[in-house]
Design a protein around this nucleic acid. Structure first.
Lengths: 182, 182
DNA sequence: TTGGTCATGTAATACGTTACATGATTTC
DNA sequence: GAAATCATGTAACGTATTACATGACCAA
């Protein structure tokens, strides 16, 4: 029995996206920025080396098409081994919820060391950014609704998460501002 | 006029903590693990090199006490320059809210590629971890309440944030489980 | 005597961002 | 003519984790 190598989450995100119609490094970046941006991000500096790696390891195959004028287009396709690796990872339990570092909370933690006004504008700006983010989520939701494949239900679940968290954070801003302003 | 160097958030977190009674690398780690763990984390591999750096740059001074038997104890104290650097950073606006990578949402995003049962247990486990986290937050809250200094009000604000976000996430779990189980 | 607490530190590795380089086609 | 889109990729750098090494004291 062959034990599969362990890859990092970035690699699995790419394997996962290769199950969709996205086949090029460029398209992978686009999909993540458009539809997963509320809980994932990636850079070309990760994508291209990772694509190379998964081909080396036999998780994907690359079909290169040289087009007149245009640059080469490398399309990637999962192999059965690649699908296995993805499935295995998907069914593994998640060990821990990671701690997200939050700069705003870090600054607020030292709030007694700055002026009330600074703290208030810190939270007000945060609130504005959260409200903008909420609007973005509604746009993503709209984009996803138009896809209408069997994946889109799950995509909407992840968005619902983003929206709920954002609303909770906005409410916290309001409540905290009230408590400070007194 | 002297322009201050820019440091990373980890460095500012250490500067901030040096405004409290925590003076050693060990105590810094402890405080973060106990009272900031809902939005920050740090390792010794960051703490000790950073302490060295801020002394080099004149942001802190170190007083070493050699004790009989026990290992050397290095106590760090902010210099006026260190306080300036902290204050400047505290009053700078936060550019962007970072995207937190979320492994659970990543797996859920590819939910159509796995069995319903896997997805359900993924979310159930997540919910359990969130509930455990909520309990932890209540413990931290209790710890902080006993400190009773002028910082503790702000510390409680950050905790309130953690609690609200966690509750929203738990509610999302419940709602999503209902929708999947149908 | 075993494990916890106090206490400091480094080296290797892993992970991620940013800036750079290239270049054709299409749209305003 | 300028800007956006499609398209690929590397190198340098910044940041963080993990494992390792050391060692005394104290409590169960």
């Amino acid at each position: 029995m062959v034990t599969l190598k362990n890859y990092n989450h970035t690699t699995y995100s790419i394997l996962g996206i290769l199950t969709t119609e996205c086949r090029t490094g460029y398209a992978i970046k686009q999909l993540i920025d458009e539809s997963l941006s509320h809980f994932w991000k990636i850079s070309y500096g990760q994508i291209y080396p990772t694509l190379k790696l998964i081909v080396q390891d036999g998780l994907a195959e690359v079909h290169t098409s040289t087009q007149k004028g245009k640059p080469d287009r490398n399309e990637y396709f999962l192999t059965p081994k690649g699908r296995d690796a993805l499935k295995t990872w998907l069914e593994e339990p998640v060990e821990q919820i990671p701690v997200e570092r939050n700069e705003i909370l870090l600054k607020l933690f030292f709030g007694s060391y700055q002026s009330k006004e600074s703290t208030i504008s810190l939270i007000k700006e945060y609130k504005q950014k959260l409200e903008a983010r909420y609007e973005t989520y509604k746009n993503i939701e709209h984009t996803i609704s138009t896809y209408n494949n069997d994946a889109s239900l799950y995509w909407l679940f992840t968005l619902d998460y983003g929206k709920r968290i954002t609303i909770a954070a906005i409410e916290w801003c309001t409540s905290t501002l009230n408590q400070i302003s007194v």
